[in-house]
């Protein structure tokens, strides 16, 4: 097997772990959990981009990885500074899928 298809296979594997990680975004239960999953996607996406850049031999993909790494931090800071207030389900009412959000 040539080296580039090994790298593509590795990228596919990481993509599958992202797909599994979507479950955490779906289930929450708090926004912090969801943001954690998204940060994880950012790291995994960076890895996928590096793998693709090696597999295809295109250096430009690494710049995309660089931007991924930079903007993940921005999202985290915005979340902690302005994130939604009622992300924590009320104690006792923490049944999944039934979070109560004060939204109109």
């Amino acid at each position: 097997m040539a080296m580039d298809s090994v790298y593509h296979a590795a990228a596919l594997f990481l993509l599958l772990t992202i797909g599994a990680g979507l479950i955490r975004i779906w289930r929450g239960p708090t926004t912090a959990d969801r943001l954690l999953a998204i940060q994880l996607f950012g790291t995994t996406g960076t890895a996928i981009l590096i793998l693709l850049s090696v597999a295809v031999g295109n250096v430009a993909f690494q710049n995309v990885a660089l931007i991924f790494a930079l903007l993940a931090g921005v999202l985290g800071v915005v979340f902690t500074q302005y994130g939604a207030q009622y992300d924590q389900p009320r104690h006792g009412a923490a049944t999944e899928g039934k979070e109560h959000h004060e939204l109109e």
Binding site: T46, L66, A72
Partner: peptide, 20 residues
Amino acid sequence: IWALVLFASATVAHLIARRA
């Protein structure tokens, strides 16, 4: 890039934990 991700994720992890 790796150093940047290390730096950002360590900070963001701290911020998330603090907020939670």
